[in-house]
């Protein structure tokens, strides 16, 4: 159903968005390829015309715009889209402006990981620190797959405990909450101890 609407550039309603969201939460992002198929050429050409950026940069921004669409969809911040092409193009252009603004603010060109880090919290005054990033990576690698899923669902996708319990077959919301607390505690302890060892 979603495929039909996206390909023909018509509106996408709540049911189709819900279907796509459920697929993504199940780890299947392939529905997004339809968005690339229908919007890529229009957005890349439009962005290059409006901003004079290179094709590579325009493609990069398009990919991040689709990421933004995915994030909003999972976070239930999208209910109805009248014109998906116009929506993605508008996001692309806003992303382009945000990227310029971030680099102006920090007065340097940034790698993706740095930019994503600053994007998550613009008021964060701490500079990007590779040691802390490694500590996070290390702590993440110490967790079981189930723990990683719980933390991602809870803190990144911001799902409710009931939804997490359903997705991971955890019985009920209370079981999910207990698991989340245990996993998150382990994650933070691992990151902190990695940083202490490095010091």
């Amino acid at each position: 159903m979603f495929t039909f609407y996206v390909v023909y550039y018509i509106s996408v309603n709540q049911d189709e968005l819900n279907h796509l969201r459920a697929e993504m939460l199940g780890g299947n992002n392939s529905g997004l390829s339809k968005i690339f198929e229908s919007c890529a050429e229009y957005c890349i050409r439009g962005l290059m015309k409006k901003t004079n950026i290179t094709k590579e940069d325009a493609e990069d921004i398009l990919i991040e715009s689709v990421m933004n669409f995915r994030e909003k969809l999972i976070d239930k911040r999208l209910s109805y889209i009248t014109n998906i092409k116009a929506y993605i193009f508008k996001t692309c252009y806003n992303m382009y402006l945000a990227r310029i603004e971030t680099e102006k603010r920090w007065r340097r060109k940034m790698s993706d990981i740095e930019r994503f880090y600053y994007d998550t919290d613009m008021s964060d005054k701490g500079d990007f620190d590779h040691e802390r990033m490694n500590a996070t990576k290390h702590a993440w690698s110490q967790l079981s797959e189930k723990c990683r899923d719980i933390i991602s669902y809870f803190y990144i996708d911001k799902l409710s405990m009931t939804e997490i319990a359903e997705l991971l077959n955890l019985g009920n919301a209370d079981v999910a909450k207990t698991s989340k607390s245990r996993c998150y505690k382990k994650f933070v302890i691992e990151a902190k101890s990695y940083l202490n060892i490095q010091k």
């Binding site: 992002n29 392939s30 997004l32 390829s33 690339f36 890529a40 493609e59 398009l62 990919i63 991040e64 689709v66 990421m67 995915r70 993706d112 990981i113 740095e114 994503f116 880090y117 994007d119 998550t120 919290d121 964060d124 802390r132 990033m133 500590a135 996070t136 990576k137 702590a139 993440w140 933390i151 991602s152 803190y155 990144i156 994650f187 933070v188 990151a191």
Partner: peptide, 21 residues
């Protein structure tokens, strides 16, 4: 810690979407 985690997860997702694209 969460900001670093979010940034890393975005990198992973971006790589996946690059392939899809």
């Amino acid at each position: 810690i969460m900001n670093y985690l979010k940034a890393q997860q975005k990198i992973e997702l971006k790589n996946e979407l690059k392939k899809l694209y």
